[in-house]
């Protein structure tokens, strides 16, 4: 891939994505793709949430998994940062705690790909963040 330096390069990339089969059908309906939210308040950031987010961004692209990655405020689980919420289409969102890169890898391979649950789920009496 050629280096992206200007907004025009970005426009070209956008056109290529449109031609590719990628997220075309899903773009108008974000609920139909896997969504990952990384809690990014002081507690999360200090515990390495940015690294976790970078890991998801890089690995999801590499492993060609269609998903959206965003950050959000404090979910209130400061003791278990970095925390992430994973929403697989049609399923209840699940919050995972202490998501280091190793755990993130496990979540991608087992939960996102196969739907198997992995350790580290924060049990729910929970209110999913709805932003």
């Amino acid at each position: 891939m050629t280096k992206i330096r200007t907004l025009d390069d970005l426009r070209n990339l956008r056109t290529n994505l449109r031609q590719g089969m990628d997220m075309r059908e899903n773009a108008d309906n974000p609920d139909s793709v896997v969504q990952i939210k990384v809690a990014m308040a002081t507690c999360g950031i200090a515990s390495g949430a940015k690294k976790t987010m970078d890991f998801f961004v890089t690995e999801l692209r590499k492993r060609q998994i269609t998903a959206l990655v965003t950050q959000t405020g404090c979910m209130g689980y400061c003791y278990a940062e970095p925390t992430i919420e994973v929403t697989i289409p049609g399923k209840t969102p699940v919050v995972f705690g202490n998501v280091t890169e190793n755990v993130a890898d496990e979540i991608i391979e087992k939960y996102i790909k196969k739907g198997e649950l992995v350790d580290g789920i924060i049990p729910q009496t929970f209110n999913p963040i709805d932003k």
Partner: peptide
């Protein structure tokens, strides 16, 4: 919002877009 206009409905939180944008800023 300039980026948003260019992406024309494609979510910015698509990892492919995020990586491209980061690269663009870094290069500049």
């Amino acid at each position: 919002h300039d980026i948003k206009t260019i992406l024309d409905g494609h979510p910015m939180s698509d990892p492919q877009i995020m990586e491209a944008l980061s690269e663009m800023i870094r290069e500049n």
